[in-house]
Design a protein around this nucleic acid. Structure first.
Length: 489
RNA sequence: CGGGGCGUGGCGCAGUCCGGUUAGCGCACCUGUUUUGGGAACAGGGGGCCGCAGGUUCGAAUCCUGCCGCCCCGACCA
């Protein structure tokens, strides 16, 4: 069967790398920590982007674009934010190269072209955007500002992995400005819900919604909302965050407005983002040892039609007819016209690429009026009457989408444990990993100690956590509710 | 930044310890023939500054020195 993909059990991270490479999603580049996203991988991102963009616009946001470079003086204005990102910033210091007099044919940085002020390559855009908003906002009538940008950002990470953590990555970042605290809090929560819907309805990736603990918060935020997904190796992935920024950036950039009583007030803010990391989450939620598995709603190709054993006019006529009908139902279809490769090779290839449904049209079956339908998610194959094929396949789209979500929910349920003692806590981490619900005393000290001793961190304080009196698994101090722990990516 | 590993056709590797004709193998690629319902077989063929720069030597992929880069594990990371 599928060759060259490492088994998940054998070496999970090698398996992940194999999928990325064999499914032709991305490859390493000449730049350390930066990947080349290949057409097939980019198509998945484009589908995510299209859907998210639609959701943002539906909720009243507009797209805009701000500069890649941020003057250092602006970057440092919001202290906590600057401090949080300082260690991972790439910095532009010069603007010109020249021929190196000591090294024929080589260039060097022109020492005379040093910038007066260094420019930071954005690790996030709050600074440059709030500096801009300052000029846009005078009155309560200018609010709210609801803007999103699709952009690249750079964070000089020490260790990178394709999609999950790269030095440069693509994302969207929403930056909104509001007249009242309530409105901003509501905005952050609304986007949190949009992210949840996207993860579950499109990626078929169930997530836990919650608040970050104070120490895990975005640098410069008063509250960070997160969606946390569970990967197949039992580790958590932070899949999206939505921050309530309070008035921190408004104060740092002096953004005030006049309210209807002609009184000056600071503006309230949110920011929120998801990135190409979602592609990594998608891979690790559904894929198996035979390759990528994609949910139909995000698959670049939803159905592939393979002539067996190879294209001939009679078969292709049927294939094209089915393709046209499926396309008429809004389904993304590829008809394989390659007459060089044999069916077995193609089957394996399309499985590697995670195409949800394959229709095999063969001479022998066709004589009996049958075609073969193969599902990627279950690997089931069935023969079905030609005239039922289109309806059956279009119906499969939702069935597969739901099955993937159900499967992922089941996996998460199996890997979620509620514990009441620290021994139990550690035992679960050794044996099962996954999500752990446990009581926590609410202090950063305890959180830190648990993390140091077990490598598990608080992923979130779930929004739907029930009040439940108990005692902290670590300190024994009283706790009002359980929080979600896991080792994380 | 610490520990480990590695740079040899597009990819994966052998050869390096112990220097010696023309640097080899698998995959991929090209041509042809036979095949074709789950990763076809055979035959022929193309493709290499052996990471870079010095040095030792009659002779360096191989030995010496310096540099550069990559991968893995840690530390780090919203």
């Amino acid at each position: 069967m599928a060759k060259e993909i490492t088994n998940r059990e054998e070496n999970y991270s090698q398996w992940y790398n194999d999928i990325v490479r064999k499914a032709d999603l991305a490859e390493n580049s000449a730049v350390r920590g930066c990947m080349v996203i290949k057409p097939y991988g980019f198509a998945i991102w484009e589908n995510m982007k299209a859907e998210l963009d639609r959701m943002f616009k539906e909720t009243g946001h507009q797209n805009a674009y701000f500069p890649l470079l941020v003057p250092k003086s602006l970057f440092e204005a919001e202290e906590k934010n600057a401090e949080g990102f300082a260690k991972e910033c790439a910095v532009v210091t010069h603007y010109r190269l020249e021929n190196d007099p000591d090294n024929e044919g080589k260039l060097r940085v022109d020492p005379n072209a040093k910038l007066e002020e260094e420019l930071i390559i954005r690790p996030t855009s709050e600074a440059i955007i709030w500096n801009t908003y300052k000029n846009w906002i005078q009155s309560y009538r200018d609010l709210p500002i609801l803007i999103n940008q699709w952009a690249n950002v750079m964070r000089w990470e020490m260790r990178t992995r394709p999609f999950l953590r790269t030095s440069e990555f693509l994302w969207q970042e929403g930056h909104t400005a509001h007249a009242t605290k309530e409105e901003a809090v509501e905005e952050a929560a609304m986007i949190h819900e949009v992210y949840t819907r996207f993860a579950e309805d499109y990626m078929a990736m169930p997530v836990i919604k919650g608040h970050k603990s104070e120490s895990e918060r975005f640098a410069g935020a008063d509250d960070t909302l997160t969606i946390e997904a569970l990967m197949q190796d039992g580790k958590a992935l932070q899949a999206g965050t939505s921050h309530f920024l309070g008035q921190n950036f408004a104060k740092a950039f002096d953004v005030k407005y006049l309210n209807s009583q002609n009184k000056e007030e600071y503006v309230w803010a949110t920011s929120w983002g998801v990135s190409t990391r979602l592609v990594g989450g998608l891979i690790m939620t559904h894929s198996d040892d035979d390759g990528l598995v994609l949910p139909p709603r995000l698959a670049p190709i939803q159905v592939v039609i393979v002539p067996i054993p190879k294209p001939n006019p009679e078969i292709m006529e049927v294939a094209d007819k089915i393709a046209i009908e499926l396309k008429g139902k809004g389904i993304r279809v590829k008809v394989d016209r390659d007459d060089k490769k044999r069916p077995g090779f193609k089957f394996a290839e399309y499985e590697m690429k995670g195409i949800p449904v394959r229709i095999g049209i063969g001479k022998r079956d066709l004589e009996k009026g049958l075609v073969e339908i193969a599902r990627r998610d279950t690997k089931e194959k069935e023969s079905i009457a030609l005239e039922l094929c289109v309806d059956h396949v279009s119906g499969l789209m939702d069935i597969i989408q739901n099955n993937l979500l159900e499967r992922a929910i089941q996996f998460r349920t199996d890997r979620t444990t509620t514990v009441d003692s620290f021994d139990e806590f550690k035992k679960v981490l050794e044996e099962n990993q996954g999500f752990i619900y446990a009581h926590w005393d609410g202090t950063a000290e305890t959180e830190e100690k648990i993390k140091t001793e077990t490598k598990a961190s608080i992923r979130c304080i779930p929004v739907d956590a029930k009040d439940e009196d108990g005692v902290c698994v670590y300190s024994g101090k009283p706790s009002r509710r359980r929080v979600l722990f896991a080792k994380a990516y």
